Simulated assay, not measured.
Amino acid sequence: MIERAAVVALGLMMAGTAVAQGMQVPSPSPGLMPNPTMGKPLFEKNCASCHGVQLDGSDKGPPLVHRIYEPSHHGDIAFQLAAKNGTRAHHWQFGDMLPVPGVTPDDVAHITAYVRMHQRRAGIR
């Protein structure tokens, strides 16, 4: 319970930072149940070319099944913000990530559920 509270607090802090920087924080539809099965084809279409079909990275982007992307370090909101606004290179030497056109906050929630499923399978919590 304490760990979950810490993750929520971190997410709120990140959202607050994004708002303070003038970024709009994307939110999935109220009541959406993110589904990894729906996330798989969305990931393959929008993310796999850089992050690898097996989420193990490529020469264009980092692996998402890695401790750096565990929920306590990169909360779900980080995935939303990266898809909407892009993100500067900060952990890896791949260059900045551009925004991902055409993905909705609901799509990103499903993609994130897919990524989190693979992280849990790898022991990343």
Rank of each mutant, 00 (worst) to 15 (best):
K40R: 13
P41A: 04
E44R: 08
E44S: 14
K45V: 07
K45S: 02
A48L: 02
A48M: 04
A48Y: 04
A48V: 03
C50L: 10
G52R: 03
G52C: 01
L55Y: 00
D56I: 15
G57R: 05
G57P: 15
S58R: 02
D59H: 13
D59Q: 05
G61H: 10
G61V: 08
P63Y: 04
P63S: 08
R67H: 09
R67F: 06
S72L: 13
S72V: 12
H74P: 07
G75E: 10
G75W: 06
D76P: 06
D76E: 10
I77T: 04
A78C: 10
L81S: 00
L81N: 05
L81H: 03
A82H: 04
A82K: 12
A83E: 07
A83V: 14
G86H: 09
T87I: 06
A89R: 02
H91W: 15
W92P: 02
W92C: 03
Q93A: 13
L98Y: 01
P99E: 02
P99M: 07
P99Q: 07
P101M: 06
P101A: 15
G102Y: 06
G102F: 07
T104C: 04
D106R: 13
D107L: 08
V108D: 03
A109G: 09
H110N: 15
H110L: 10
I111R: 00
I111F: 02
